[in-house]
Amino acid sequence: MANQVIHTAINGQEHTHEVEPRMLLVHYIRDVVGLTGTHVGCETSLCGACTIMVDGQAVKSCTMLAVQADGAEIMTIEGLAQNGELHPIQEGFWECHGLQCGFCTPGMIIAAHQLLQRNPNPSEDEIRHGLDGNLCRCTGYQHIVDAVQYAAEKMQGSRERKEV
């Protein structure tokens, strides 16, 4: 099959590349665009290390083709901090020791991002359920839960300040 030209906006930057139709989105992001913060842990959409945002939805980029992302707005872990300021979720992971080897972390943070967008004030159970598609082998998850709670509180606080 002939190569196809795709246009994407990744972390606010426009990209145009010619890709093989079979190329996975995660390989496009890592090997063509060169953003290696998104990881490949299983290639079967079970571990969640490759989770990114595609048009506002958390997606496991190891089971989506690059050509399917033509025209999409994508955010990867590299796009979460703004103007050198960590996002509250990143801050939470740092403050609460929510990571050890760090390999699952980018996907975990993006999944938490989606979770907090949908449910800004989740219970512990809701956090655990919301992260069920992301595997971590190091932490036992407790500090990850703490990190998401930290972020939720912080984001809630800044929303309330804005409302005042």
Binding site: R30, H39, I77, E95, L99, F103
Partner: peptide, 19 residues
Amino acid sequence: IKRREDPRLIQGLSHYVDD
């Protein structure tokens, strides 16, 4: 003390072999 490793890991700025 919170980890000095973390800023690179939580921003996708670290380098594993495949990176």
